[in-house]
Write a protein that binds this DNA or RNA. Structure first.
Length: 210
DNA sequence: ATCCCGAGGG
DNA sequence: CCCTCTGGAT
């Protein structure tokens, strides 16, 4: 996609949504981290439903650790992959308490060393909790990058690197949320709604999908 | 490449 | 029924 087209692409997404943000509910970097770990292969609506009950009783790393894995499992049983997630959340909280005073480190290497935290989750926390210009390539952004021609790539890392290269600096910080929200509600996996898409004329795929 | 794994939509 | 949802570890 040409540079001038990329510029228009982002300008239109910005017109639609001047101040985009996550749809996960959270009240601290710690809660965002936990919500993102829980969101793997799950909808944010489902995650919010569970954290609405969980965070009041375990709002911090210390209280989550005290809650224990078995009780945590009960709270998140409605979310897919819940056994692995419960184990990882407790193990992560233990490290946060023992090594970081219960706080979430604003550092990629430290984040990715936490159980259940990979590159994508680290990128979300760095961007949304700490305001860094990262782009977390999830299922939506991977699909949108390839489908539209904005940032084609075989792997999520390919797409991430391409996005970091083509995205103008002024759009970098919010790019993650513009792209994910557009992917979630318009450029959907099954039935993309090209008829109400604001960048359909810039898209290399248009209505050819499905 | 495979496993984990519930809810919601079509 | 099938597919998808802000993936990560082995």
């Amino acid at each position: 996609m040409k540079k001038s087209v990329v510029e228009q692409f982002y300008q239109r997404l910005r017109e639609n949504n001047p101040a985009p943000t996550t749809e996960l509910d959270y009240a601290s970097p710690f809660q965002l981290l936990i919500a993102v770990i829980l969101s793997a292969q799950a909808t944010d609506v489902g995650v919010n439903k569970a954290t609405a009950r969980l965070f009041p009783v375990a709002p911090t790393a210390e209280t989550m650790l005290a809650l224990g894995e078995a009780t945590l499992t009960d709270y998140i049983k409605t979310i897919g992959l819940y056994r692995t997630k419960a184990r990882n959340v407790i193990a992560t909280c233990r490290i946060l308490v023992e090594q970081y005073g219960g706080e979430v480190p604003a550092d990629r290497t430290a984040l990715e060393a936490l159980p259940g935290v990979g590159r994508k989750t680290a990128n979300v926390v760095l961007n949304t909790a700490f305001g860094q210009p990262t782009i977390a390539v999830d299922t939506h952004i991977f699909r949108l990058g390839n489908r539209t021609g904005l940032a084609p790539g075989k792997t999520v890392l390919d797409v991430e690197n391409k996005l970091l290269r083509v995205t103008p600096r002024e759009f970098m910080k919010d790019a993650h949320h513009w792209l994910i929200l557009h992917g979630r509600y318009v450029c959907k996996a099954r039935k993309p709604e090209c008829s109400r898409c604001c960048v359909v004329d810039l898209c290399e795929f248009r209505g050819k999908t499905v």
